[in-house]
């Protein structure tokens, strides 16, 4: 190890980078782990129905499943395009 390396250690270490990446990844994977397995299919089908009437983007829909001790909540969020479609 060269003397120069000693001065470089003030930079973020690779270990802290690893920790940060893992924390984000693991949190994300854990939250999706508890979701019911039908969720991706539900999201896909909902999107298909909505697109029959409104021209929304593929990623305009988000489905969130939350669970606490007493209840389960399914939250559906659809972002409509700025100019509403005139098909009615």
């Amino acid at each position: 190890m060269s003397l120069l390396d000693y001065f470089r250690t003030s930079k973020a270490s690779s270990a802290s980078l690893a920790k940060e990446r893992l924390q984000i990844l693991v949190a994300h994977e854990r939250s999706s782990r508890n979701q019911p397995s039908y969720l991706p299919q539900l999201q896909k089908e909902l999107l298909e129905v909505i697109r029959k009437y409104i021209n929304v983007e593929q990623d305009a829909i988000s489905v969130n499943f939350e669970q606490n001790d007493t209840q389960e909540t399914l939250e559906l969020n659809i972002v409509l395009p700025e100019h509403q479609t005139k098909t009615s």
Binding site: T9, S13, A18, K19
Partner: peptide, 8 residues
């Protein structure tokens, strides 16, 4: 770990 190269 001490050198910050490995997760502790």
């Amino acid at each position: 770990v001490k050198l910050g190269e490995m997760l502790s």
